[in-house]
Design a protein around this nucleic acid. Structure first.
Lengths: 290, 290
DNA sequence: CTTCATATGAATAATATGTTTCAGAAGCAC
DNA sequence: GTGCTTCTGAAACATATTATTCATATGAAG
């Protein structure tokens, strides 16, 4: 290692809170392609970050360098140290933490989960699911279990912004039969059931299927027993170095589904978003006078 | 790869025979610590190679560049290509779908978000947050906004399994002052506030800080205005090709925090998990006879 | 030893870079 | 809203970098 024992990246992290809007915009660019983006002239860097050159110079000072060239010199020397050391692994995520830090372990693991999930995910199936959820003719109900209710709720909140006829089924399973009453044949039921599969979900799925409701099931790699009643199911990888399972990949899929539904129903969605916007404005106004 | 398909190193090798003594001395230095040595100013490079600056400029021309800066630019872009991680250069995620399928676009994007978030995240700060959340002496309250309530709820559910004194503050902000009453100086408030930052959250943060409550804020890369009242804040990247923002990275961080708290408090957590297990068993038994 | 061709770097000119200043914009507090 | 503070980038300025010129050095050929 060179004489400096604190990297530019770390200085940025440490000082981030003290930076202004334009400066943050700038350091984002620097870190995005670290450290190469900081190697060119101050002018080029400023252009890439859409800020002025004085902003770059000021930031360098703020971070404790004598000026931009000084910062650049350190970047070069860091790079030299990195490149000349064959042992350096570039796949460390949180650069200032050791390989064994939980952040790095988690990151490796989650990426692996994502990769494996997508490897097994059929794009055609995904598109069919999107199709089902975009169809205004059929209502959509969403239900989750003990730990997956948050996912259900997240999905519901977004779907609700895009279309009519979306219901979030409450946590308490004793009320579920009532919800079933308003689900007709062809309607869509989105279920979440991960490891430590829940009895209630299983029974609910069975009853729903009997009514001709089409079930989309989000489950884990091993598969919930409710799978046998589902029209489509998506298996997310959920294992991480923790006593609990990870919902990150499932949430990823949900967001992709949401984005796809949004594309599919853009005219309607767009209209609704604008209305919603207007409503929020009114609420704000209302609050002011209370 | 950039537009040029022949590297500087190759050009040097190809043109080596045509070079003069001083020029060869120079390119030896360049290749010795390739490509960093070529990143500084022409003056420094000349000094390192014990030649004059005109020699450097002439050599650049001889190798077919317009001038020294042009050669330097190519060195930079080569470096960029080398350094940028192979993970992002997608080996297509969902194998059967085209590159342009939303799943693949989303995957690239989210990985990028994760990488950039972790680049900004200081491991020491992370550890301090874990420390705060593991301390049984102080209660922990969790609150989210319109779209981030699901995250708050997810976090709460897990924290609740690990320790006593965790509260989920309800969605409806009119009740928030009541929750404030039971928060004492030193207690911890976990807040979520993403783009379209919410007034209520801001005011709540201000009041909480005034009471000496320590705030941990989960926000986006631009930073919620509530940040100025927070003891620690974590900035997640949230942009994806969608009309809405992504919570995947935030959820990732949450899970890492949860795992770390679990490690920190393992004796207590372990005990609680077993008790919880027993309780669930009883519930099941109970249901059977109903 | 002289001549000539080529190579080289000191000095200088041309150009680009980085810094500072300052006026206007944006945000905040009252 | 009004006044205050802070932030920001255009422009001017100072500085460093790069290209060019040219005198000298070097070495090969006769």
């Amino acid at each position: 290692m060179p004489a400096h024992d604190i990297t530019v990246a770390q200085r940025i992290q440490d000082g981030f809170d003290a930076l202004t809007r334009a400066e943050r915009q700038l350091v984002n660019i620097i870190l995005e392609n670290y450290p190469v983006s900081g190697m060119g002239s101050i002018t080029v860097l400023a252009e890439n970050a859409d800020v002025s050159t004085p902003t770059v110079a000021r930031m360098a000072r703020k971070l404790g360098f004598g000026g931009f060239p000084e910062m650049q010199a350190q970047l070069r020397s860091e790079l030299e140290a990195t490149i000349s050391d064959p042992l350096t692994k570039h796949d460390k995520w949180a650069a200032d933490a050791p390989d064994t830090h939980i952040l790095n372990q988690f990151a490796d693991n989650v990426i692996d989960n994502l990769r494996n999930t997508l490897k097994h995910l059929n794009a055609g199936k995904f598109d069919e699911i999107v199709e089902m959820l975009s169809d205004p003719e059929h209502t959509v109900a969403v239900v989750g279990g003990r730990l997956s209710h948050s996912l259900a709720s997240y999905f519901f909140t977004h779907m609700q912004m895009m279309r009519d006829g979306v219901t979030l089924i409450e946590r308490n399973s004793s009320s579920w039969p009532h919800y079933l009453l308003s689900l007709k044949a062809g309607d869509v039921l989105v279920m979440f059931d991960m490891r430590r599969y829940e009895q209630d979900i299983l029974r609910f799925a069975e009853m729903a299927q009997a009514r001709g409701v089409r079930i989309i099931l989000f489950t884990d790699q091993w598969g919930s027993p409710a799978g046998k009643f589902a029209k489509h199911q998506i298996h997310s990888r959920i294992e991480v170095p923790s006593a609990w399972d990870s919902s990150v990949v499932t949430m990823f899929i949900l967001e992709a589904v949401i984005a796809a539904v949004q594309n599919e129903t853009w005219d309607e969605t767009n209209k609704r978003m604008k209305e919603l916007e207007a409503l929020f404005e009114k609420t704000k106004l209302f609050k002011k006078f209370v």
